[in-house]
């Protein structure tokens, strides 16, 4: 169930314009790509315009109270200034490839759990528990995603659980995200493992949100051949005690 994929960003404009990427990492990487690839940026523009026509075709009469409700609400909503989300001098995030223009950039980041701190350029490394877990260093996440040698590996488990790792050998790191993880009872937790020949080490506990998504986790790839997810007793284990529900083979990446 594990598949390695070469990453060919130039063919993703259609899926992107249709909001059909189900993988937040892939979407983030494509948005990185749009900043530097004029061809794709232009194509996305035309295809987004085209997708909007599909939307216009299904126009329907809005409910009678909606207009008044919206007009009342905007009276209480503060408008954003044009530069919100862009750090001083942070032009890179503001214009090229339309990153600031696209509403989904922020939506995508939020969905991926990277939060607004990426857009703000903030670096936040949070360690958690005694487990040596380096969690979503936001800038680190973007660095891995944007690395020229980044490769994607993903695996699925029954019931729609998906684990995806974007691996960059040049960065010596991978970014792991997961979605579709079922809620566990309080007595259990998901745990991520770095698996090297003869050594399995914890890469931290995974805490899915209400929609079953796990925020990006950065994992050091030195010597690591696989990463896996198991269900463990609350608080985690020193070594896995159950069979991995997700197992990603990095050797092919």
């Amino acid at each position: 169930m594990t598949g390695a994929g070469g990453y060919d960003p130039h063919r993703l404009a259609g899926a992107y314009a249709l909001d059909a990427m189900d993988d937040d990492l892939e979407r983030l990487r494509f948005e990185e790509h749009l900043r530097t690839c004029d061809e794709c940026a232009q194509e996305v523009r035309g295809l987004t315009e085209t997708a909007a026509r599909l939307g216009q075709a299904v126009a329907a009469e809005p409910p009678p109270g909606m207009r008044a409700a919206v007009l009342a609400e905007i009276g209480q909503v503060r408008q954003l200034p044009p530069t919100v989300g862009v750090p001083p001098g942070g032009r890179r995030l503001s214009r090229r490839g339309g990153a600031a223009w696209w509403p989904r950039v922020t939506a995508g980041l939020a969905a991926a759990g990277v939060a607004a701190s990426v857009a703000l350029g903030a670096v936040a490394v949070r360690t958690q528990d005694e487990l040596e877990r380096v969690r979503a260093d936001d800038r680190g996440v973007v660095a891995v995603l944007a690395a020229p040698d980044a490769r994607t590996v993903s695996a699925t488990a029954g019931r729609g659980a998906t684990g995806t790792a974007v691996v960059s050998r040049s960065q010596g790191r991978l970014v792991f995200v997961s979605s579709g993880l079922a809620a566990l009872p309080p007595s259990q937790t998901y745990q991520l493992w770095r698996i090297a020949p003869g050594a399995i080490r914890s890469a931290g506990l995974l805490r899915p949100d209400d929609s079953g998504r796990v925020p990006p986790v950065i994992v050091d790839t030195a010597g690591v051949e696989q990463v896996g997810v198991t269900v463990e007793p609350a608080g985690g284990s020193a070594q896995p005690t159950t069979r991995p529900m997700l197992l990603l083979d990095l050797t092919s990446a």
Partner: peptide, 25 residues
């Protein structure tokens, strides 16, 4: 749309497409 109007950049597409993109998303 009201809140983020200042972020709309006409060089990136029509206002209508922008609104529809927000709606679809």
């Amino acid at each position: 749309v009201w809140r983020s109007a200042a972020r709309y950049d006409p060089s990136k597409g029509s206002a209508r497409a922008w609104v529809m993109t927000v709606a679809h998303r």
